[in-house]
Design a binder for these strands. Structure first.
Lengths: 203, 203
DNA sequence: TGCGTGTTTTACCAATCGGTCAAATGAACG
DNA sequence: CGTTCATTTGACCGATTGGTAAAACACGCA
């Protein structure tokens, strides 16, 4: 089960180059719509050279998805019982916004995979994502029962955080067309803060 | 500039069948990831037969996008100056939710196009979508200046409506995995009502 | 210098891609 | 019936697809 480690410095570098190029292409066109030639050109390598480092197109995609899932759920994991509930939720929103700003390609890669029916990630959604979401929803319900936040459906609360934050990465072209040059992220953070404070502060 | 009308009943029927099959395939795999063979099989027709009704793969895609845009903006157009601002906004949210429930494929087709950089729709975004959004944002600002809704950024307000409502169509696989069988739309509507009333009701 | 290992390229393959064409079929009508 | 036009099909095309094989190259090291 241990992953084969790159042995040389050049292998490490070229694998990273290929994965970065693959992220560029896959995040735009999805798995089926992407070609090895595109990835090869983006990486500045020849197509057979790609296949020297990865056994197949799918292997590149799978490795990208695995790397993605590893880090994608971290922000949610960090939402914990300790502090003030609303601050915990706002921090989670901030982390998600920051990820959309810093890693928009990863967000789009995920969106593309889900749009295509999540063929290579569905098991991970059931085995990793769902239990984590269930756990955090139980935490949110506890906050509600303690009267520390307003009574909202925790699942839809999480969906709304995901959708609004990832929207700025996944639909960046549309957002940029409408906002015309202005950076959307600062305004988004202020808006989302206000939104969740309004909704979650107990009456 | 007038569109060539189908002349016979059988043409009308087959064109509809092809467009429906194209919507199935394109909404899942995007333009580049979809093949004429897939569409032909989904339509129950032979590939050359498809090309008897449409000149090319792209022509099918373009016609789908044009049909989509025609109806996609209607819910926003209906948001008007007349009634109570919060009711107007909630009605818009309801219409958007209903479109995600009734036409999830159209939502995913749009999402795929935007993810791929909107190559066939970017002009329409600038020429049709942006002016409409600008107009409605001016309306929202007027409501704010009249003190009838809380002071929120109208652009991010619209983005948040789009993202949260379309999320239930675009990420249906993920939502279903987490909600396990339960219909998400009823809960979504209740949640979104509460969210926007909380946020928009003037203090 | 030569040797072995790791890396890259050239040439190539079968399968699939979007699309064409001409022939075959179907249906309406006198 | 025969004619005409709309429809469907099978055979095919060049380009592109993911992937392979083997030779060429690069480099460290004795």
């Amino acid at each position: 089960m241990t992953k084969t480690q790159p042995r040389t410095r050049i292998q490490e570098k070229n694998r990273k180059t290929i994965l970065d190029a693959g992220l560029d292409v896959f995040s735009k066109y999805g798995f089926r719509g992407s070609t090895l030639d595109q990835i090869a050109e983006a990486a500045g390598l020849s197509k057979p050279n790609l296949l020297y480092y990865f056994p197949s197109k799918e292997a590149i995609h799978v490795e990208l998805l695995e790397m993605l899932l590893d880090t994608w759920l971290d922000p949610l994991r960090e939402m914990e019982h300790d502090g003030d509930p609303i601050e915990e939720i706002l921090s989670y929103v901030h982390r998600k916004i920051e990820m959309s700003r810093e890693y928009p390609r990863e967000s789009r890669l995920f969106a593309n995979e889900i749009l295509q029916g999540a063929p290579r990630i569905l098991d991970a959604l059931s085995d990793e994502l769902k239990p984590l979401v269930d756990e955090k929803c139980a935490l949110i319900r506890q906050w509600i029962s303690e009267g520390r936040i307003a009574e909202v459906d925790p699942y839809h609360l999480i969906f709304s955080i995901w959708s609004m934050t990832q929207h700025y990465a996944d639909f960046a072209v549309q957002v940029d067309t409408i906002m015309e040059g202005k950076d959307p992220f600062d305004g988004a953070q202020k808006y989302l803060d206000y939104l969740f404070i309004s909704m979650l502060t107990p009456k």
